[in-house]
């Protein structure tokens, strides 16, 4: 079997929270989390608000450091100082694409900035890369001259994807990025993601509080509850044989 793209080993993270005037309370946001994600595969991390999903995302993107444990990317331990290098490999998509795009910047300029900041491509190579990425996402060359407000919701989601994919990442983290989409748009975006995975071997980490779509697009899943990993394994297996009450409740709620 190939080596994992991302491997998380016994990750712990706690926060100190002020309580009363002098008191402090320790909140264990994540304890003993381990999982692996292989190239070309999708792992869904499912949990409700407060389960530790956002903490996990922050650790992965390097905004926060774990108390203990390891994050290995292609077999190498990742530390915060590698942030820039690491930025190439892992990219993010958030729930609301419109809010994460600068309204005063043309799409072409935005993509150009990403490339100029993190690659050594020359002007001509950058333009070529921009056109190639737009085409890959079903957008047109003319769209480079558009401002975000000139796009429909679906196209904006594609623009956000273009910004993430122009760096040729190996891992895309989708943080609630599909949850709020309307059905016909959601189907379009899901198809685009599936197609990209098939053609480029991209891996996805799908972070969500809904099981919807998890069964269709993820190969494996991990249920996170109060900072702990409950069920973890191939998606079909977890759906068919959840071991924990909470996972069972979650799976039932998605089907009732």
């Amino acid at each position: 079997m190939t080596a994992p793209l991302l491997e998380i080993r016994q990750l712990y993270k706690s926060y100190q929270k002020a309580q009363g005037i002098f008191g402090r309370k320790t909140i264990q946001a994540l304890s003993d989390i381990s999982f692996s994600l292989y190239p070309g595969q999708t792992l869904a991390i499912v949990g409700e608000t407060g389960s530790g999903k956002s903490t996990l995302a922050k650790l992965l993107v390097g905004i926060e450091t774990p108390d203990s444990g390891e994050i290995l990317l292609e077999g190498e331990a990742v530390t915060i100082s590698d942030h820039k290098k690491y930025n190439h490999v892992i990219r993010y998509i958030f729930q609301d694409p419109a809010r994460s795009l600068n309204p005063h910047q043309r799409v072409g300029q935005m993509l150009e900035d990403v490339l100029r900041y993190s690659t050594d491509l020359n002007e001509q190579q950058r333009q070529q890369k921009i056109h190639q990425t737009l085409a890959q996402l079903g957008l047109m060359e003319e769209h480079a001259a558009y401002y975000p407000h000139m796009f429909s919701g679906g196209q904006l989601q594609r623009v956000a994807l273009a910004r993430a994919l122009i760096m040729d990442p190996k891992l895309l983290i989708l943080d609630e990025a599909l949850t709020a989409l309307d059905p016909s748009l959601r189907a379009q975006i899901v198809n685009l993601l599936l197609e990209l995975q098939k053609t480029t071997g991209l891996s996805y980490l799908l972070i969500t509080n809904h099981l919807r779509l998890v069964r269709h697009i993820s190969d494996s899943m991990l249920v996170l509850h109060q900072g702990k990993a409950l069920d973890y394994g191939p998606t079909n297996h977890v759906f068919a044989h959840p071991q924990h009450d909470y996972s069972r409740k979650l799976i039932n709620s998605a089907q009732s």
């Binding site: 429909s152 919701g153 679906g154 196209q155 309307d182 016909s184 748009l185 189907a187 379009q188 899901v190 198809n191 599936l194 197609e195 069964r215 269709h216 697009i217 998606t235 079909n236």
Partner: peptide, 13 residues
């Protein structure tokens, strides 16, 4: 089957 394309209308509302 899982991971197969979903039916989608082209274009947007």
């Amino acid at each position: 089957a899982s991971k197969q394309p979903l039916y989608a209308l082209h274009g947007s509302i």
